[in-house]
C-alpha cells in the first residue's frame, strides 16, 4: 500500500519535472512544435525525442542520429565554430595543426572524373558497431545505450588504438596540458577525445551545437522513432552513409553526396 503510494509520488514528480522543464523552455525547437500539434496520446512519443528524465539510465529504445543535407548551401564553418565554442576546443598553445583537436571538420569531396564536388561536415559518425569500441583495451571507448559513441576519459590510457581503427578520422589525441576547460566537456593531456554528439546538451533536452548552428541543414532526432522528423526525412530521401561498404550502420547520414 505504502509502496504504491510512493510509486505514485515518484510518477507525479517525474511528470512535474517534465512539465517544469517543458515550461521553462529547455525543450525547444521543432520537436516541441511537433509535440503540441498532435493529440495527447502521441504527445508522449514526441517528447521522447528530447531527453527529459535524467535520473534514469538511458535505454536503447532511443537511438540518436543526425542527418546532414549537403544540398543546402550553408557555411559549415559555423557548425565547426559552434562546436569549438561548446566544447572549448582550439585552446592548445603548443600543438601544431596536425596535433590539435577537431571534433568536426569541413571536408570537400570532388569526383575526379566528372568534377562534381560537395562540401560536408564530418564528425564522429556514431556507428552502431563502432570499430573504436571494439579495439579499446580498457573499455574507455564506449557506446551509450542510446547510440552515442564517446570516450570515458577516466579509463583512457592514451594508447590511441581507437584512432588507428576509426575509418572517419574522427578522433583526436590531446598532445599537451590543458587548463580552463568547459565545465561540461572535461578534456586533458594524454587522452583521446571525439565528438560526443553534445551528450551534455542532449541530456538537457537540447540539440547538438552543430545542429543548432546549421540553419536547418542538419536534423537531429531519434532514429528508432518512426514519427520523428529525422526518420521521416530518411524514409523519403536517398541519404548515404560515409563508407557504407564497411557496414557500420552510422548514426550520421548525408543527403546529396
Amino acid at each position: 500500500m505504502s509502496s504504491k503510494a510512493s510509486n505514485q509520488t515518484t510518477e507525479q514528480s517525474k511528470t512535474d519535472l517534465t512539465k517544469r522543464k517543458f515550461l521553462s523552455g529547455t525543450v525547444t525547437g521543432s520537436m516541441v512544435a511537433a509535440g503540441v500539434s498532435v493529440a495527447p496520446g502521441i504527445f508522449l512519443t514526441q517528447v521522447a525525442q528530447a531527453r527529459t528524465n535524467t535520473s534514469a539510465a538511458v535505454t536503447s529504445d532511443v537511438r540518436w542520429g543526425i542527418v546532414i543535407d549537403t544540398t543546402k548551401k550553408v557555411d559549415w564553418n559555423k557548425c565547426v565554430d559552434a562546436c569549438n565554442r561548446e566544447h572549448g576546443l582550439g585552446n592548445e598553445t603548443k600543438s601544431n595543426q596536425e596535433q590539435k583537436t577537431e571534433y568536426i571538420r569541413v571536408v570537400k569531396v570532388k569526383n575526379k572524373t566528372t568534377g562534381y564536388s560537395s562540401t560536408l561536415p564530418v564528425m564522429c559518425q556514431h556507428c552502431e558497431t563502432p570499430p573504436c569500441v571494439d579495439v579499446c583495451p580498457t573499455g574507455a571507448s564506449m557506446k551509450r545505450e542510446d547510440g552515442i559513441v564517446y570516450v570515458d576519459r577516466h579509463l583512457c590510457i592514451g594508447c590511441r588504438y581507437c584512432m588507428m581503427a576509426c575509418p572517419y578520422k574522427a578522433r583526436s589525441f590531446v598532445h599537451e596540458t590543458l587548463t580552463d576547460q568547459k565545465e561540461n566537456t572535461p578534456r586533458g593531456k594524454g587522452c583521446v577525445e571525439s565528438c560526443n554528439m553534445c551528450v551534455n546538451r542532449i541530456d538537457q533536452g537540447l540539440k547538438p551545437a552543430c545542429v543548432d548552428a546549421s540553419e536547418g541543414a542538419m536534423i537531429f532526432g531519434d532514429l528508432n522513432d518512426k514519427s520523428s522528423e529525422i526518420s521521416k526525412f530518411l524514409a523519403i530521401q536517398n541519404t548515404k552513409q560515409i563508407r557504407a561498404d564497411l557496414r557500420l550502420n552510422t548514426g550520421v547520414r548525408y543527403q546529396g553526396i
Binding site: 583495451p137 580498457t138 573499455g139 583512457c156 593531456k189 594524454g190 583521446v192
Partner: peptide, 25 residues
C-alpha cells in the same frame, strides 16, 4: 609511450575482450 602511463593499473584491471590489445596483454 602511452598518453597516461600512470594508468597502468587501469590497463591491468579493466579489460575489453573484443580488443586485440587486451588479448595481447
Amino acid at each position: 609511450d602511452l598518453g597516461r602511463p600512470d594508468r597502468l593499473i587501469v590497463a591491468m584491471t579493466e579489460f575489453n575482450f573484443t580488443s586485440i590489445f587486451t588479448w595481447n596483454i
